[in-house]
Simulated assay, not measured.
Amino acid sequence: MPVLATVALRARDAVKGVWREAAKFGVVGALAFVVDNGGYNLLVFGLPGGAEGGPMRTSPVQASVIATTAAALFSWVGNRYWTYRDQHREKVTQELVLFLVANGVGLAITAGTVFASRQLLGLDSALSDNTARIFGWVLATLFRFYAYRRYVFVAP
């Protein structure tokens, strides 16, 4: 088989593998997004139609941290046992620590966008909070995908 054909087949298989991985990562991420944003909105704004707001209405950054932490734990289970089930480390503790570090950076990115929206821009509506969180979530997701592939879910 000519060298060019071999290289083309290997490239095709690599792209196919990354797309499959990205799709699984995306499904886990989409569900984690629901946990994260649903939790945040319940904590800050309460149930729809509620007049008083949520229990953390005066602490939106802390609410973001709590919601993102819950979503990160959900994400670890989903990614470890589904997306990267053939690539995870045998030492669960080491993997979890690396995962938490990567998610700590992601959490800082997401909470940072809420902080910037609230403190630097002076915005405090549900729309501005959710816009800031979605922007932060997109940036954090790109970082996490890279970190998971490169550092967290790698066979020893």
Rank of each mutant, 00 (worst) to 15 (best):
F99V: 07
G53Y: 00
A8I: 06
P60N: 07
G136V: 00
V7L: 15
E52L: 15
R149P: 02
V27G: 06
R89H: 11
V18M: 11
D13H: 06
V28T: 04
V7A: 14
A71L: 03
G39E: 05
L4I: 13
P55A: 10
A140P: 09
F143P: 08
R89Q: 12
K24Y: 12
N37I: 10
A14M: 08
E52R: 15
R85A: 12
S64D: 11
K16D: 14
E95F: 03
V44F: 06
A111G: 10
G53H: 07
E52D: 12
Q62H: 13
W76S: 03
E21N: 06
A51K: 13
A32M: 05
A126K: 13
A5V: 12
V27R: 07
A5E: 15
F115V: 12
V28D: 01
V15Y: 08
D86V: 07
E21W: 02
A140M: 05
P156W: 05
V15M: 11
F115T: 11
A14V: 12
Y151P: 02
D36G: 00
V101M: 04
V97H: 00
E52K: 12
V77K: 05
G29R: 02
V27D: 04
R85Q: 09
A147W: 00
A22Y: 11
F25V: 04
R150K: 13
L121T: 01
F33E: 05
N103W: 02
L142V: 15
A32C: 09
N79G: 01
S75Q: 05
A116E: 02
G78E: 04
A22C: 04
Y148G: 05
Q119C: 08
A70W: 04
S75D: 09
I66L: 11
E52W: 13
V92R: 13
V105P: 10
L31F: 15
N79P: 05
R149N: 10
P55H: 01
L123P: 04
G53K: 09
T113I: 05
A22E: 07
G38V: 06
A155E: 12
G29W: 00
L107W: 01
L127M: 12
F143H: 12
W19G: 09
S59N: 12
V65L: 13
G53S: 02
S64E: 08
A23S: 15
A51Q: 11
G38C: 06
M1A: 13
F135A: 15
A63Y: 05
A32H: 00
A32W: 07
A11K: 09
G38I: 02
V92H: 13
A72K: 07
A70G: 11
V152S: 05
T131V: 14
T68N: 12
V101T: 09
M56E: 06
V92N: 10
